[in-house]
Design a binder for these strands. Structure first.
Length: 934
RNA sequence: AGACCCGUAGCUCAGCUGGUUAGAGCGCUGUCUUGACAUGGCAGAGGUCGGUGGUUCAAGUCCACUCGGGUCUACCA
C-alpha cells in the first residue's frame, strides 16, 4: 500500500459508482426517520449542463448527509417526456430521410419517438451517474410510463369532473411554426426595433378622418371598432359614429373605453379582438360582433363574437379582400401598406421599439389566435397554494423568492394545457356527435361511466408537459395508488431548483399537490442561482461559452472543445469569434479535474441568492485539495512502514494530546458543517472542511506528529499512528457527502492498512461521533505551541533568515511553567518546525544580539548570530512599528470616548482594553529591539 | 411601470440579528527541494467596503437619496 500511487480520479470514480449502483447503495434503507428529495426531471432530450451539475451536487450532498445522520433517505430520479422538444428532435431526424410526421401518421410517429427514447433518451441519466449522485435508480420514473400516464389521466379526469378544467374558445399564443398553442410562460417578449404606422380611417357620412397608430397594420381586416378615451375632448364628438376601414371598406363603430391612453400615439386605437389580447377584452366589454350586413356593431357582452382573419399558418383568411386571402402575414403587411399608400390612407411611418412575442422553443414570432383549448382554472387552485407559503408550511430559501411567487400567484391566469402535438399524454376526453365532452380513462370507460351508445371521438390534443410534471412529487411515488413509498416519503423534505422554473413547475406542483394530496409537496424550496461563465455571461450555444461538466471531469482537448462549441450553430457567422475566444481561454484545452473537485467547486461557490460566475481557476485549486487528502493517506502508510503499527498493542490513541486536539477540531467542524447544511450554506460548509483538512489536519496535526514520531517509543508511535488513522477516517466521513469518491477510496485504503474489514459504503458509516477522551486542558496547551511556532516563524522571516539557519530561543525564567512544559512535551516538533537549535532559560539580556519576541504574551528572545546585521531589516521593522502605532491610536481614541465606555456592552469595552494592552506590549517589545540596534 | 438582486483586495467571492486589527481561494512577491504532497512548505504585500447624507457610543452591516451592472413580471395600439 505504501507504494506511491498518484491521485487519479479516473481510476476510482467510475468503478466506485458501478459498485454503489450494483450493490444498491442508493436504496433509501429502512430507518425510523425519513428524508426525501425529488429530482427536477430533466428532459429526455437533454444533455447535462452546469446547472444540472450544480443542483445535483447540492441534492447529493443533502441526501448523503441525511443518510449518514441516520435517516431513510430517498432521492427520486426520473425524466420528463418534453413534448415539444422531443417531437422536434424526432421530426428533424425523420426529415433527414425526407419523411414528415404526417406521412407516418400518429401511431407510427409515436412508435418512432419511443424508438428514439429507448436509444438516446438515457444520455442525461448516464451523465447524472458521473456526478456521483445517490439516485434511487431502481425506482426511476418517466412521465410517459404506463403508471405515470394513468396518474396524469386520473388527475385530468378528477379536475374535469370538479369543473376545474374546461374548454374555451378564445385567444391563445399560437406558434405557427410548431402548429400548437403555448402557455403564457412559454412566450418570451423580445424587444426589437420596429415601425409604427399611422393610418387614416374615414368617418362615415362625414369628411372627417381619424388617424390610428398601429404596429400591425395587417390586422386591420379584423378591426371591429375604433376606440378613444371617454375623457378625451378631441374625440368625444365622434363617439357613437362609424368609421370605414380603408381597403376593406367595412364599417365599424367608434367606441369609448378607458383602456385607451390619450397620451400615446394619436389617442385613437383600432380594436381587433381576434388578434390582440387587450383588444379582446375591449371587444368583450362592448359586445362587438358582425351584423349580417357585415357591419361591426356594439351589443351586450353575450353578443361578443370576434372575427379571425388568420389561419393556423398565420396566413390571411376570412373577412379579407380576395387578393389577400392565403397571403402570409408579413407579405400581407407589405402589400397592404402599398395599397394604403396608393389610396393615401397611410399618413405616417416611424421607428418604434416593439416587444415581439417569441416562442421559447421555435424562436418564431407568435400569433394571438382564436382557438378552442383546454384550460385549468388556476385561480381556484392557487388559493390554498398561496396560503401554504403565507402560513409558513412551505418555505422558500432564500426567503425573498416568496415575493416573486406571490406576485405571480395573485395575478394568475387560467392555464392553457392543450397542445396540438402527438407526443405526450393524449387528453382523456371523448366527444359525442353533439360535441359534448366526457372524461374517462378510455372509450370503454367513458361509455360505461356515462352509458353512451353512439359514436365517440377522442380529443386529438395532448397535455402540456408541465401538467404531468406538476404531479411529480406524488405520481412518482405511486399515486393514485396508496403505496408505502407515498406514505413514507410524501410530503418530500426539500426541493432544490432554479428560479427560472418557479412558475413553470414549483407553483404548479404546489397547486396540484394541495388539490390531490391535501398536503404540501415539500417543506422547503432551495432556490439556486444560475451558473454563468467567468464574465457573468449566461452560458449559451450561440455565445459559444458553454462548459460541459463532463469535460471538466474528464478533460478535453482544445480541438475537441472547439468542435463541440461550434457544432450545429444556428448562426454560423459566430463561429470565428467562438473559436478565437475558446483558444484564448483554453489554449491547452481543459484538464481533467475529476468529479470530486468539480463538486467541491460548486459547493464553494454556492452562496445563497446570487448567480454563480464559474471560474475555472477555482476548480484546479480543489483538485489540489483532493490531492492533498490523497497524500495525507499516503503519509500514514509511510509511517506504518517506517515504525510499524500494531493496533492491539497501542495505547488508546485518544490519550495522546495531539490526537485529542485533532479530534476536538473535527468535532467542532462537524457541528459547524451540520449547521451550515441545515441552512443550505454549502459555501460555508465547504470552507470549514477545507480549513479542517488542509490547515488543521495537514499543516498542523501531521507536521506536529511527524517529528514527534521519530522521538517516541514504540507504544507512543502506535498511539500516534492510530490517531492519524482514526482522525482521517472521521474526516473522510465528514467530507463524504461533498466528495463521495475520494473519501470512499481513502476510507477503504485506511481500513486495509489496518487489515480491518469495512462497511460496504461510507454512506452507511454514520457521521463522526464525539469520542471518550481523557480529561485534560489540552486545548490551551496546543494553542500555545501553535502560537509559539507562528511567532518564531514570523520573526525569523522579518529578519530574513532562511530555514537552514537554526537559532537559539531564550524563554526567561519569569515565563509561566505551562509554557515550558508545553514546549518540552513537543520539543522535537517544535524545534524542527520553526528552526530552533536550542531552547534555554536566562534573564533577558539587554545587550547581546537578540530580537525580542512575544510568545503567548510572554516576552522572549530569539538569539541572533554574532555577525548578524540589522541594517537590512531595520526599515521594515520600523514600518511594522508604525502600523502597530496606528492601531493603538485608533483604539485609544475609542476608549477615550465616554459615551463608548458608558453605552457599549461591557464585553466590547473589555475586549478593546485587552487588545490595547496586547498591542502596547507588542509595540514596546519591538521598540526595544529597534532601539538596541539603531 | 412594478418587483428583486448585485457593486468588499488584481480576479471569483464570504462577512449571520451593527461591536475584535474587514476574511478565503486564485493570482502576485520573497524564500525553501533526501522522502505525504512543488498538485507542495513557510512568510508577506494588496481593499476603508460604488457615491452622498443620516441614525448610533459604534456602520461594509440599518435608513434615505444617488450612480453603475443584472434579472423577472406587466405593458401603449
Amino acid at each position: 500500500m505504501s507504494k506511491k500511487s498518484p491521485y487519479l480520479p479516473k481510476d476510482i470514480e467510475e468503478s466506485l459508482y458501478h459498485e454503489w449502483e450494483e450493490k444498491r447503495a442508493f436504496a433509501p434503507g429502512d430507518k425510523p426517520g425519513t428524508f426525501s428529495l425529488m429530482i427536477p426531471p430533466p428532459n429526455v432530450t437533454g444533455t447535462l449542463h452546469m446547472g444540472h451539475g450544480f443542483q445535483n451536487a447540492i441534492m447529493d450532498c443533502l441526501i448523503r448527509f441525511k443518510k449518514m445522520q441516520g435517516f431513510a433517505s430517498l432521492w427520486q430520479v426520473g425524466t420528463d417526456h418534453a413534448g415539444i422538444a422531443t417531437e422536434m428532435v424526432v421530426e428533424r431526424l425523420l426529415a433527414k430521410d425526407g419523411i414528415s410526421k404526417t406521412d407516418l401518421g400518429r401511431e407510427k410517429f409515436i412508435e418512432k419517438v419511443w424508438d428514439w427514447k429507448n436509444q438516446s433518451g438515457n444520455t442525461i441519466t448516464q451523465q447524472l451517474r458521473r456526478l456521483g449522485g445517490s439516485l434511487d435508480w431502481e425506482h426511476e420514473r418517466f412521465t410517459c410510463d404506463e403508471d405515470y400516464e394513468h396518474a396524469v389521466q386520473h388527475a385530468f379526469i378528477e379536475l374535469f369532473d370538479a369543473g376545474l378544467i374546461y374548454q374555451g374558445y378564445r385567444l391563445v399564443n399560437w406558434d405557427p411554426k410548431l402548429q400548437t398553442s403555448l402557455s403564457d410562460l412559454e412566450v418570451l417578449n423580445e424587444e426589437k426595433v420596429g415601425k409604427i404606422w399611422t393610418i387614416s380611417y374615414a368617418i362615415e357620412d362625414s369628411n372627417d378622418c381619424l388617424q390610428v397608430a398601429t404596429t400591425r397594420p395587417e390586422t386591420l381586416f379584423g378591426d371591429m371598432a375604433l376606440a378613444v378615451n371617454p375623457n378625451d375632448d378631441r374625440y368625444s364628438s365622434y363617439i357613437g359614429q362609424k368609421a370605414i376601414i380603408p381597403v376593406a371598406n367595412r364599417s365599424i363603430p367608434i367606441i369609448a373605453d378607458t383602456y385607451v391612453d390619450s397620451e400615446f400615439g394619436t389617442g385613437v386605437v383600432k380594436i381587433t379582438p381576434g388578434h390582440d389580447f387587450n383588444d379582446y377584452e375591449v371587444g368583450q366589454r362592448h359586445g362587438l360582433h358582425l351584423k349580417e350586413s357585415g357591419e361591426a356593431s356594439i351589443g351586450d357582452e353575450s353578443k361578443f363574437l370576434p372575427i379571425s382573419i388568420m389561419d393556423k399558418d398565420a396566413c390571411l383568411q376570412g373577412e379579407v379582400p380576395d387578393k389577400f386571402k392565403g397571403m402570409e402575414r408579413f407579405v400581407a403587411r407589405e402589400n397592404l401598406l402599398e395599397e394604403l399608400r396608393t389610396c393615401s390612407a397611410l399618413v405616417g411611418e416611424d421607428d418604434h421599439n416593439i416587444k415581439l412575442p417569441i416562442g421559447d422553443r421555435s424562436n418564431e414570432i407568435l400569433e394571438p389566435l382564436l382557438t378552442k383549448q383546454w384550460y385549468v382554472d388556476a385561480k381556484s387552485l392557487a388559493k390554498p397554494a398561496i396560503q401554504a407559503v403565507k402560513n409558513g408550511e412551505i418555505k422558500f430559501v432564500p426567503k425573498n423568492w416568496e415575493k416573486t411567487y406571490f406576485q405571480w400567484m395573485e395575478n394568475i391566469q387560467d392555464w392553457c394545457i392543450s397542445r396540438q402535438l402527438w407526443w405526450g399524454h393524449r387528453i382523456p376526453i371523448w366527444f359525442d356527435d353533439d360535441g359534448n365532452a366526457f372524461a374517462g380513462n378510455s372509450e370503454e370507460h367513458v361509455r360505461e361511466k356515462y352509458g353512451i351508445k353512439g359514436p365517440l371521438k377522442q380529443d386529438e390534443d395532448v397535455l402540456d408537459t408541465w401538467f404531468s410534471s406538476s404531479l411529480w412529487t406524488f405520481a412518482t411515488l405511486g399515486w393514485p395508488k396508496e403505496t408505502d413509498r407515498l406514505a413514507l416519503f410524501h410530503p418530500t423534505s426539500t426541493l432544490v431548483t432554479g428560479f427560472d422554473i418557479i412558475f413553470f413547475w414549483v407553483a404548479r406542483m404546489i397547486m396540484m399537490t394541495m388539490y390531490f394530496m391535501k398536503e404540501i409537496p415539500f417543506k422547503e424550496i432551495f432556490i439556486t442561482g444560475l451558473i454563468r461563465d467567468e464574465n457573468g455571461q449566461k452560458m449559451s450555444k450561440s455565445k459559444g461559452n458553454i462548459l460541459d461538466p463532463i469535460d471538466l471531469i474528464d478533460g478535453i482537448s482544445l480541438e475537441e472543445l472547439i468542435r463541440k462549441r461550434t457544432f450545429g450553430l444556428m448562426q454560423p457567422q459566430l463561429e470565428e469569434k467562438i473559436i478565437t475566444a475558446t483558444q484564448k481561454q483554453f489554449p491547452n484545452g481543459i484538464d481533467s479535474y475529476g468529479t470530486d473537485a468539480l463538486r467541491f467547486t460548486f459547493y464553494s461557490l454556492a452562496a445563497p441568492g446570487r448567480d454563480i460566475n464559474f471560474d475555472i481557476g477555482r476548480i484546479s485549486g480543489f483538485k489540489n485539495f483532493c490531492n492533498k487528502i490523497w497524500n495525507a493517506m499516503h503519509f500514514i502508510g509511510f509511517q506504518i512502514d517506517k515504525y510499524g503499527y500494531e493496533k492491539d498493542l497501542a495505547m488508546n490513541p485518544f490519550e495522546h494530546p495531539l490526537n485529542i486536539w485533532m479530534h476536538e477540531q473535527i468535532v467542532k467542524s462537524t457541528n459547524a458543517i451540520t449547521q451550515h447544511i441545515e441552512n443550505y450554506r454549502f459555501d460555508l460548509a465547504s470552507n470549514e472542511l477545507y480549513e479542517l483538512i488542509w490547515s488543521k489536519y495537514c499543516d498542523w496535526y501531521i507536521e506536529l506528529t511527524k517529528n514527534q514520531l521519530s522521538q517516541a517509543n514504540h507504544l507512543e508511535q502506535s498511539a500516534l499512528i492510530g490517531g492519524l488513522i482514526a482522525n482521517l477516517e472521521d474526516i473522510v466521513k465528514l467530507a463524504h457527502p461533498f466528495m463521495p469518491f475520494i473519501t470512499e477510496q481513502v476510507f477503504r485504503n485506511l481500513k486495509k492498512l489496518q487489515s480491518e474489514s469495512f462497511p460496504d459504503f461510507l454512506v452507511d458509516s454514520g457521521m463522526p461521533q464525539q469520542r471518550e477522551i481523557a480529561k485534560n486542558n489540552i486545548n490551551p496547551f496546543l494553542d500555545d505551541i501553535i502560537d509559539c511556532i507562528a511567532s518564531v516563524r514570523a520573526t525569523r522571516n522579518d529578519l530574513n533568515f532562511d530555514n537552514k539557519i537554526t537559532l537559539d530561543l531564550n524563554i526567561p525564567p519569569t515565563a509561566p511553567k505551562r509554557l515550558f512544559n508545553s514546549i518540552n512535551i513537543l520539543k522535537a516538533s517544535f524545534n524542527k518546525m520553526c528552526g530552533i537549535a536550542d531552547i534555554y532559560s536566562k534573564d533577558l539580556d539587554k545587550h547581546s544580539k537578540a530580537m525580542n519576541i512575544l510568545i503567548a504574551g510572554e516576552k522572549c528572545q530569539l538569539v541572533l548570530p554574532e555577525n548578524f546585521s540589522f541594517d537590512d531589516v531595520l526599515s521594515s521593522l520600523k514600518n511594522k512599528l508604525e502600523k502597530i502605532q496606528e492601531k493603538i491610536s485608533s483604539i485609544e481614541k475609542k476608549l477615550a470616548n465616554e459615551d463608548f465606555i458608558s453605552k457599549a456592552p461591557k464585553n466590547v469595552v473589555t475586549n478593546q482594553q485587552e487588545q490595547l494592552q496586547e498591542l502596547v506590549q507588542e509595540k514596546e517589545s519591538l521598540e526595544e529591539s529597534i532601539k538596541k540596534y539603531s
